[in-house]
Amino acid sequence: MAQALSPEARERQRLYWQEKNRRRRAAKRGGASEPYTLVEIAARDRARCGLCGGRVAMKRVAPHPKAPTIDHVVPVAEGGDDTRANVQLAHFRCNSAKGARGSQQLALIG
């Protein structure tokens, strides 16, 4: 019988698949990709949401509205790259509202 994973191992596994899927989606659309982590982006952005400017609750997990997520400034669906230069930290709520639209389009809607 398989042994259950520890919470830490489960989180590492989740992050691994999340990163792998980001790279796969970018490659599928012909965009560039480079490795990065949520923690690196959060440190760079000083734990502030790139969409609303509010503080991101780094200990929360989606679907909590203030949970940290990676937002692509130019969405991968629109041809954006999966690189550090094209990502920012965002609340789960803000990133979900933005969807696959660019920041400029979001400003026009909101």
Rank of each mutant, 00 (worst) to 15 (best):
M1N: 11
Q3M: 13
A4I: 13
S6V: 12
P7K: 09
A9D: 14
A9C: 09
E11I: 04
E11L: 09
R12F: 14
R12K: 14
Q13C: 11
Y16C: 14
E19A: 15
E19D: 15
N21P: 14
R23N: 10
R23C: 09
R24C: 14
R25L: 14
R25E: 12
A26Q: 03
A26Y: 12
A26S: 07
K28C: 12
K28A: 15
K28Y: 15
R29C: 08
R29I: 05
R29G: 10
G30N: 07
G31Y: 12
A32V: 06
P35W: 10
P35K: 06
Y36T: 08
Y36L: 12
Y36D: 06
Y36F: 15
Y36G: 08
Y36P: 10
T37I: 12
L38A: 01
L38H: 04
V39H: 08
E40K: 04
E40H: 10
I41C: 03
A42Q: 03
A43V: 03
A43D: 03
D45V: 00
R46V: 06
A47Q: 03
G50D: 02
C52A: 07
G53L: 01
G53F: 01
V56K: 00
V56G: 01
V56E: 02
A57F: 07
R60G: 01
R60F: 05
A62S: 06
A62N: 05
P63L: 01
H64L: 00
P65K: 07
K66P: 00
T69V: 09
D71N: 11
D71E: 14
D71Q: 08
H72R: 09
H72K: 09
V74E: 08
A77G: 03
E78G: 00
G79P: 05
T83S: 04
R84K: 07
R84L: 07
A85L: 02
A85T: 02
Q88M: 14
Q88C: 13
L89A: 03
L89V: 07
R93P: 00
C94F: 07
S96I: 10
A97P: 00
G99K: 01
G99C: 10
A100L: 08
R101W: 10
R101M: 09
G102A: 13
G102K: 12
S103E: 12
Q104S: 08
Q104I: 06
Q104K: 08
Q105I: 04
L106S: 02
A107C: 07
A107E: 08
L108N: 00
L108C: 02
I109A: 13
